[in-house]
């Protein structure tokens, strides 16, 4: 990357210029920004999925659907069987990638999709108007629309929140949100917990750790040593999900 300016750097520079102009006119705004920068985010959730281990059992999908009371067609974490160019095949679970530069968030007309300080993209189903622009914009097909009546929650008093959107609301869009309602209580996301192969790791970029429930590793080293890649990284969406390629899998498929 040396000598080459990435898109984020470019945007950052432009943004910096813009902030400078703003600061000249609106000093309070500049102060507010500086304050936010000092505190910084506590967590930046990320995921690593080890394709060498995934055996395609879909336990993650089932656990997710159970946790969120989803119908069978709602695969917030969906397991694809991929046939590569060499004739081999492997399994690839796809949660929401919680993109840093999320296309779904940009196109939402009512800000029903938003990003938390912890780097997770959530949907406020009380706000969503169901235009499905985000579904068109998502480069990973991670979003699901409630065409019909969603199954009701087991707890009849459960009020849906963006962190725990159960029951889902008809006519609105839902998706994986890294089970932030569970991590708030120190629990692992349902899919991580359910994975018998321990192929899914949940991690935090700030503390630089990741765990699959059995082991804990230093996230940056783990990604680097295993040559982890991010799916469709070239789009510039900045996905927060890293894949460790399966045995014999071509990185270019």
């Amino acid at each position: 990357m040396a000598g080459q300016m990435s898109r984020r750097q470019l945007l950052g520079t432009l943004g910096g210029l813009g902030t400078g102009v703003l600061a000249a006119g609106f000093v309070p705004i500049a102060f507010a920004e500086a304050e936010a920068a000092e505190t910084g985010p506590k967590r930046q959730w990320a995921m690593v999925i080890d394709l060498r281990k995934c055996d395609g059992c879909k336990a993650c999908t089932k656990a997710c659907q159970e946790t969120h009371h989803l119908p069978e067609s709602f695969e917030w974490i969906k397991v694809f069987e991929v046939h590569d160019k060499q004739g081999g095949s492997f399994f690839m679970p796809r949660p929401c990638f919680q993109c840093e530069n999320a296309p779904c968030l940009k196109v939402c007309p009512v800000a029903a999709t938003f990003k938390t300080n912890d780097g997770v993209v959530l949907v406020d189903q009380d706000r969503c108007i169901g235009c499905r622009m985000c579904m068109a914009a998502c480069p990973y097909g991670a979003r699901y629309f409630n065409y019909g009546d969603p199954p009701i929650a087991s707890n009849p008093f459960q009020r849906p929140t963006p962190e725990f959107p159960v029951p889902q609301q008809k006519g609105t869009v839902g998706k994986c949100m890294f089970c932030v309602h569970r991590s708030a209580n120190g629990e692992l996301p349902a899919c991580v917990d359910a994975c018998g192969m321990k192929a899914i790791w949940i991690g935090d970029l700030v503390e630089d750790v990741a765990t699959n429930g059995d082991e804990t590793v230093r996230l940056s080293t783990f990604i680097k040593e295993n040559d982890a890649f991010r799916y469709k990284e070239e789009l510039g969406t900045g996905p927060r999900v890293y894949y460790i390629a399966g045995h014999g899998q071509l990185l270019d498929y």
Binding site: V107, V110, A111, R127, G130, C131, M133, T172
Partner: peptide
């Protein structure tokens, strides 16, 4: 566009909570 909405009852949200970055707006 209104016929296509999942929640036509919330149509006015597009004005109330308008996000200028959205092509829908």
């Amino acid at each position: 566009p209104i016929i296509d909405l999942g929640r036509p009852d919330r149509f006015l949200y597009v004005i109330q909570y308008a996000q200028v970055g959205s092509p829908i707006v």
